[in-house]
């Protein structure tokens, strides 16, 4: 019994298992932050790896991971797509102008419906979606170089260089 309790101590209750692992990305169709751009659709996330990053200009820890996202935006092996959650366009634009825009495309989710479909409990949260549209990894909280090297890089290597 003591053993069970010790396991409990080492388990972070804030990290919840995702119901999405190994499952297809839930369908969504979100208006782009830049109205001139086409909608961001889950269906379009096939044929290559996608890093789907839920963020908001109000989100403090998003600032923490932002420099890493800027670096990752130069990586050609995947597409970095953002979902701007519960935000205003003015604040989001301002945030990207100040910190740089790492995203290839950004969808907005004002009502939080898509974000709930993804089972997101807080921003930032990142999903690694493979070329078949299957969710391979969920990272709640800010991405770090450690998480990148340990959990994400191996997934990309699996796939080999994307065309």
């Amino acid at each position: 019994m003591g053993g069970v309790l010790v396991i409990g101590l080492n388990h972070d209750p804030r990290v919840m298992p995702s119901t999405l692992l190994g499952a297809p990305l839930p369908a969504f169709d979100l208006p782009a932050l830049d109205e001139a751009q086409p909608n961001i659709k889950s269906a379009s996330m096939k044929g290559g790896f996608t890093l789907l990053n839920v963020w908001g200009s109000w989100c403090v820890s998003c600032r923490e991971e932002h420099p890493l996202l800027m670096k990752l935006s130069k990586d050609k092996r995947f597409k970095l797509v953002g979902i701007d959650w519960r935000d205003t366009k003015a604040h989001a634009d301002d945030y990207l102008l100040t910190n740089g825009n790492p995203y290839a495309a950004i969808g907005t989710d004002q009502g939080g419906r898509t974000v709930i479909d993804l089972g997101v409990s807080g921003a930032p949260e990142t999903f690694v979606v493979d070329n078949t549209g299957t969710v391979r990894l969920r990272v709640p909280g800010p991405l770090t170089p450690e998480i990148w090297a340990k959990d994400i890089e191996p997934l990309l290597k699996d796939q080999g260089p994307a065309s």
């Binding site: 919840m16 298992p17 995702s18 119901t19 709930i116 479909d117 993804l118 089972g119 409990s121």
Partner: peptide, 8 residues
């Protein structure tokens, strides 16, 4: 709701 967030 459970389908999205699990039994948690």
């Amino acid at each position: 709701v459970v389908a999205r967030y699990g039994n948690y």
